[in-house]
C-alpha cells in the first residue's frame, strides 16, 4: 500500500524525524520509478529522487489533504522531472489530448498473440530475457505512454489520481494506457520478428576489394 496513513502524515508535518524517515522510505521506490520513467538513467533518477525528497521535507506542511498524499507527491515529482529536462535543454514530454474513442482498440496485445512466451503468466515472471526486452521496448516508447503506464502499475493509484498527476483529462489517461500497451506490444513484436530473421549473407561479388575485412561483417553492421 503506497498511501501513508493520515497519522504518519500529520506526525511528519509536525517535523517528527522518525515519521519523515518512514514516509521517505515508504515512498522511495515510487519516486524513483517516476524519476526513471522521466529521465531514464539510474544516476539521474537517483539524483531526482533525492531532490524530490528535499523538496518534500520543505513543503510537506503545505499538504492540505485535498487530494491523496501520493497524488500530491507524485505530481510534485513529475513536475520536478519536467523542470530538470528543461534545465538540460531536453524536450519535456508532451501530454497530447487523446480520447478513448480515437480509433478502435479492441485488444492492445493482439500483436503478441503468436508469441507463445506470453501464454503463461507464472512463467514470464522468471523469464529474464523477456524482462530485458520489455525494458528496451519501454525505452523506445513515447514519453507520455511510458509515464502513464508507470503510474498505472503502482498498486493503488486510480485513473482519477493519474489524471491529476499528469494534469490531463480522465479519458486521456485511459487512452494513454490502452494505446501505450498497444505500442509496447507492437515494439516487442517487431523486435522479436527482427530477431528470428537470419542474418543476410553477403555474396562474394558484393565485397568491395578496397574494404575486404569490413565487408566480411557488413551484414552485422547493417551495410549493403
Amino acid at each position: 500500500m503506497a498511501e501513508p496513513t493520515p497519522e504518519l502524515i500529520q506526525r511528519a508535518q509536525r517535523g517528527d524525524p522518525e515519521s519523515l524517515g518512514a514516509l521517505i522510505v515508504g515512498q522511495q521506490q515510487y519516486i524513483y520509478s517516476i524519476a526513471m520513467s522521466v529521465l531514464r538513467q539510474p544516476e539521474d533518477a537517483a539524483d531526482l529522487t533525492q531532490e524530490a525528497c528535499m523538496k518534500l521535507l520543505r513543503v510537506i506542511g503545505q499538504y492540505n489533504g485535498e487530494s491523496r498524499f501520493t497524488t500530491w507527491l507524485y505530481r510534485l515529482v513529475v513536475n520536478l522531472g519536467r523542470d530538470e529536462l528543461r534545465r538540460r535543454g531536453r524536450r519535456v514530454p508532451e501530454m497530447p489530448p487523446m480520447s478513448d474513442d480515437d480509433g478502435e482498440v479492441i485488444d492492445p496485445l493482439q500483436s503478441l498473440a503468436d508469441d507463445d512466451r506470453w501464454a503463461d503468466p507464472a512463467a514470464v515472471a522468471t523469464n529474464t530475457e523477456l524482462q530485458g526486452e520489455i525494458r528496451q521496448a519501454l525505452d523506445s516508447l513515447e514519453d507520455h505512454y511510458r509515464l502513464a503506464l508507470t503510474l498505472y502499475y503502482f498498486e493503488d493509484l486510480r485513473y482519477n489520481d493519474i489524471a491529476e498527476i499528469l494534469d490531463v483529462p480522465l479519458n486521456t489517461v485511459k487512452s494513454y494506457i490502452r494505446r501505450g500497451k498497444e505500442r509496447l506490444a507492437t515494439i516487442l513484436a517487431s523486435s522479436e520478428s527482427e530477431k528470428i530473421q537470419p542474418p543476410r549473407t553477403v555474396a562474394k561479388s558484393d565485397v568491395p576489394v578496397s574494404q575486404p575485412r569490413l565487408a566480411r561483417f557488413a551484414w552485422a553492421l547493417g551495410r549493403r
Binding site: Y32, V124, A125, L130, A185
Partner: peptide
C-alpha cells in the same frame, strides 16, 4: 492470460530496484 503475463512483466520493468545507497 496474455494480458496477465504482460502486466506482470511490465510492472516489474517500470518499478526498477532502488540503488543500494539511495
Amino acid at each position: 492470460k496474455r494480458a496477465a503475463a504482460f502486466d506482470t512483466v511490465v510492472q516489474s520493468a517500470v518499478m526498477p530496484m532502488v540503488p543500494d545507497d539511495l
